[in-house]
Design a protein around this nucleic acid. Structure first.
Lengths: 199, 199
DNA sequence: ACCCGGGTTGACTGACGAGTCAATCCGAGG
DNA sequence: CCTCGGATTGACTCGTCAGTCAACCCGGGT
């Protein structure tokens, strides 16, 4: 059989270790040997599975971002009101953080915001997410559920920006965490963006 | 006279050059010699005025962030409705970007989001901004201008998150720019956060 | 028993870049 | 004119680390 010989998938172990190391030390300040040590494999093995340190980060990002894009597409396909769709998306993102805070930290801190130093691949992937969100808002504006005072693209940015800021607050310990806080955050994001602060 | 001997302030030139270099190449990927070259001074002079490469970035951030905190405080002291205050703050931030996009890029991309690798000084400074914003919202909730369905801290994050996301869009060229776009962005941020998307 | 080839190892190299430092410049004061 | 001290210079040091590579391990096929 040509299937994976080893019982444990070393490639996977390296990726998982990289998440922990990147989250702890940051991409630029960690050494490849830190990743290998954390994964319990030899230094060279990292280069057996990946072309470079960058490719490890790329892989982590693309892997997860694609899952998120799929989730958004799935939500968008539902026949629900836009508000519910946005809640479902906020829910997905918050739960992603709950499930693997380190990974989300790496994606937000090292990739999303540092998109300049990386290839345009990432910019494109990120833009895909915005496009999807814009679509939801646009449709809601047409159906009359949302006002059309602001452009859909802009609404998408405000929505995503609010979520990302909350995650950032959790990541840096500025914002209270815990299951309650997570659930509240989902509500608050949607309530703020859809309902507004005005009384 | 013990005053600055040189007609031109080399320290200032180094800081200005650093903004351009950091914006172009990123903090981690640029060399100190790049900064010196860009400033047209010798390598060693950077170390005459600054302890380290990090200190150059620190200085840039603190310099500008303090200006912003002052501006926010000034706005907060006015007797205007919260919505106007938020508009004034959005205005200040957007105009900061218009005036010096490179500097804002550096602050957002290299500092605000990378606060982990830097000292808690930055976290504290950033938190000060949030506190100020929260205060504005809280007061508006008490006066009845805003609903109290979401916590002030959260509203502050949503507001700032929306603005930062817009700046990020400009920085990475995802979002249309120009004087019109800047003015529209100010309106949109406030309209979204205060008015909400619902019709 | 013997090979074959992919998985695995870790010492080594080569480049790179932050920070140092001794020397030089130059204006001010005496 | 001379000295003093801060400003300025840039060659050099020294540690670090991404990436290479030759060798080794080991199961499966013959």
């Amino acid at each position: 059989m040509a299937t994976a010989r080893p019982a444990v998938d070393k490639r996977r172990m390296i990726l998982d270790a990289a998440v922990r190391v990147f989250a702890r030390q940051g991409f630029h300040t960690c050494r490849v040997s830190d990743i290998a040590d954390e994964a319990g494999v030899a230094y060279g093995l990292v280069y057996h599975y990946f072309q470079s340190k960058d490719e490890v980060l790329d892989t982590l990002f693309l892997e997860r971002w694609d899952v998120m894009l799929d989730a958004i597409r799935e939500v968008d396909a539902r026949p629900d009101p836009a508000r519910d769709k946005l809640y479902a998306i906020a829910s997905f993102i918050v739960d992603s953080y709950r499930h693997d805070p380190d990974l989300m930290k790496v994606i937000i801190v090292e990739v999303t915001r540092a998109a300049n130093s990386f290839g345009a691949v990432h910019l494109g992937k990120i833009a895909e997410g915005y496009a999807q969100l814009s679509g939801i808002v646009e449709q809601a504006q047409r159906s009359g559920e949302f006002r059309d005072t602001v452009s859909p693209e802009f609404a998408a940015m405000a929505f995503y920006g609010a979520i990302e800021q909350v995650l950032t607050g959790w990541i840096f310990g500025t914002l209270e965490q815990g299951d309650d806080a997570y659930e509240r955050a989902k509500e608050y994001v949607v309530e703020t963006i859809c309902g507004g602060l005005n009384s």
